[in-house]
Design a protein around this nucleic acid. Structure first.
Lengths: 214, 214
DNA sequence: ACCTGAACACCGTTCAAGT
DNA sequence: ACCTGAACACCGTTCAAGT
């Protein structure tokens, strides 16, 4: 990353025939490229070149470009899940924690826009194809569902179907994140902070405890 | 569209040197291809071939592929705007109309998933580049803002900043649409109907008239 | 003005061959 | 097992040339 001379690869340890952990390196390099220039700038040739490896070496570790993208997306979901869990637990697993989750979610999207697009943009064709990708996404979603169940038990929010509630909340926050990323929020509030604040406040009102709706 | 013989183009009227309205045909054909197989299946060569035209003829009408996609996306926003206006007006410009707008929105996305993705997927690079695209998107958004202002005047909903309220509502509905398109809503409710119904009901509660929040 | 055809600089992917 | 190098079938885009 910080190496200045591009054509130099003559160090002793790195020059062995077998690359240390090429799979890991490929994912990292792909993620870096995507973060820097968007998915459309990711080419297998460049990523191989940057790692000092043939452009077909990748096929030992991934079935095709899609699979590499799926792996990148999967890691995004792992990171997102960690961020959500953190927010929820650091803020007392209650109303404040729930709001913090929403803010953390949008912040993740805004700071990793291209990564976020790989996760949701449909680049991973009918995600169902990649089991790992789907599992990571489901796990991230699970954090939200769990927090909803917990709040229901504490009498903080309505007792509607937790899955349905989670989808609704996710929709709203995901939508805010997308609008922020897409630059639809021009001028003031380009980062979507005001929108996120307003959205979490209104969502709280929307799901406040009351009679259940079966 | 219904022509069976592929290699036959010898009819008298269609054989003139100048194509009738190539720009229109290009947009239509591109939209058709996208609807059928997704954006990634759109190639300029095929679209030209299908119209019986050189693959470079397109450059007389669009600066590049991006510009063609922007035109397709623009038309999507025009259609969406019409659908929203219809729903709003056909259902009495009130609470029912507002709900109908949400349902119409998700229905548009679900019935034109690939088209919807072109509009929001970031394929049109930092949409700001294409003025027509942006104008059409803003116009569609305007229908929502107008309906909010009208409902505020009628005392039906809170008097928060209409733009902010519109962004919040849009976020929620856009998010539901994306989840439905992405196939994240597997099994039951694959079309997102239950989610949309629940979302509109909860959103109504979220923005119900009350003390304003400046 | 509008369109063509050849050419250019790229892609992802395959496959026999190397170590 | 892991990687290479040449080859294949594609792209979008350009540009001189045709009508």
């Amino acid at each position: 990353m910080a190496s200045a001379a591009p054509a130099r690869r003559k160090r002793k340890p790195a020059d062995r025939y077998h690359h240390g952990d090429l799979r890991r390196s490929l994912i990292d390099e792909a993620a870096r490229t995507i973060q820097a220039g968007g998915v459309e700038h990711l080419t297998l040739r460049t990523v191989g070149e940057r790692l000092g490896v043939s452009r077909t070496a990748l096929y030992r570790h991934f079935s095709d470009k899609q699979a590499l993208l799926a792996a990148v997306g999967r890691e995004g979901f792992v990171t997102l899940r960690a961020a959500l869990t953190d927010a929820w637990e650091q803020h007392g697993r209650g109303r404040a924690g729930f709001e913090a989750m929403g803010i953390a979610y949008v912040r993740f999207a805004v700071t990793h826009p291209s990564h976020y697009r790989v996760m949701f943009g449909g680049f991973v064709e009918s995600c169902a194809k990649d089991a790992d990708f789907l599992a990571a996404a489901t796990a991230a979603f699970g954090v939200l569902v769990d927090s909803i169940v917990e709040q229901q038990r504490a009498g903080l929010i309505r007792r509607d179907d937790p899955e349905l509630m989670a989808r609704f909340i996710w929709s709203a926050v995901h939508g805010a994140a997308m609008l922020a990323i897409d630059g639809q929020l021009r001028g003031v509030d380009a980062q979507g902070e005001a929108l996120t604040r307003y959205a979490t406040a209104r969502l709280r009102a929307a799901i406040a405890a009351g009679e259940a709706m079966p």
